[in-house]
Design a protein around this nucleic acid. Structure first.
Lengths: 205, 205
DNA sequence: AGATAAATAGGGTATTTCCCCTATATCGGC
DNA sequence: GCCGATATAGGGGAAATACCCTATTTATCT
């Protein structure tokens, strides 16, 4: 079994190499530190399995995964992440990943994932599986309306509902309604989380 | 040389163990997956070196580092992070870290860091060193105490005063006092502004 | 020794957030 | 013409905040 490992963190690559060697589960034909290098290598050698970190500089593991799917290559993909966010897992599987593994997971999970994926199956940990199920069942479209984004923008600037109301020529109560709806959509409970989201999504400019 | 490794990602721990064993640079007496466990272990066994991830669940490596400094333990700390943000490095060193290492750094950097730190030196990569110099030269001193930064960190995570109090073993009223003092120092009036500040200043890790 | 700063924590109050509810008007799609 | 989504807005209440105050302890500096 030919395996390629891609992660921008040298220590993580070392860990993966050590684990895979110990388990004698296959041979690593390459370990690279970027999505772009991974893609070049996969295109040329079409390995059996690609273990890709999601967050890697310019070309993410997700992006490489989509390219593999688009080209119809036989390489099967296991995506790795730091935090096991259910939204990210959903994205990963929709991008065509055959397996999903949080970095916090232990040795045997990795080996199990490699085996499962190689024999044509899909690997997700049991706990994530059930979580994903319920997430997909009641995932109400996460898209925010223009007005909602506008309100978030003002919230991230540190304005109160009253101030935002004045700025947008609506009542503070309406602002509160928008705010509450957004919170519900995103599953947040505090303004702080919303501000963080706004900054990360570029809604605060 | 006794070394403890703390990182919530199993694969990263494996990588560190493999590297340290290969280099025969010391013996790892423990590897744990949380800041709390690390702190308990360090308190009891006072190892020579603690290699701590900064971002670990509730108790960060930064926080463990501060505790070690406060207790005057001989354990020397090397902090690890994903992204080499200069603000985070500055925070880490001010928190009492003896070394700073991005996870993307290679084998020899880790070994060099361990050696340097063990012999009483401070390790940062050369490129980061010069960057840090210029950053510190023109950073406008906001004069926040370590405790205040710690509180801000939790606020930016979206925790309430009550929750922060529990996490830091102080009353919610004290958290409120810190919060109010920071607001006054920085001229803020809302949590949102504080969250923005924390993210921009790299205090949110 | 005295001053200063930091961390602790309580009392009190006004404001704000968070979240439940109902209700109306508008607009686009089927 | 009706349905669903969006935007509007109000009632109400529990929780959290922002900000005023005082006060003690510990540590550091002069």
């Amino acid at each position: 079994m030919k395996i390629i490992v891609a992660d921008d963190h040298h220590i993580v690559r070392q860990g993966l190499l050590a684990l895979i060697q110990t388990a004698r589960v296959g041979s690593i034909i390459a370990d690279v530190d970027s999505g772009e290098k991974a893609w070049q290598h996969i295109l040329r050698h079409e390995p059996d399995i690609a273990i890709l970190d999601i967050t890697m500089g310019e070309v993410s593991g997700l992006s490489v995964c989509q390219r593999i799917k688009a080209r119809g290559l036989k390489t099967r993909v296991i995506l790795l992440t730091m935090h096991s966010d259910i939204k990210v897992i959903d994205n990963a599987l929709e991008a065509g990943a055959h397996g999903y593994l949080p970095k916090s997971d232990a040795f045997h999970s990795l080996i199990k994932a490699i085996h499962t994926v190689h024999t044509g199956g899909q690997y997700i940990s049991d706990s994530h599986q059930s979580e994903l199920q319920s997430y997909r069942n009641n995932k109400t479209d996460f898209e925010l309306t223009i007005r909602e984004k506008e309100v978030i923008h003002h919230i991230a600037l540190g304005q109160t509902n009253k101030e935002i109301g004045k700025a947008l020529f609506i009542s503070a109560k309406t602002v509160d309604a928008h705010r509450t709806r957004v919170m519900k959509k995103l599953g947040f409970k505090k303004t702080a989380q919303l501000v963080r989201f706004a900054i990360e999504q570029g809604l605060s400019l």
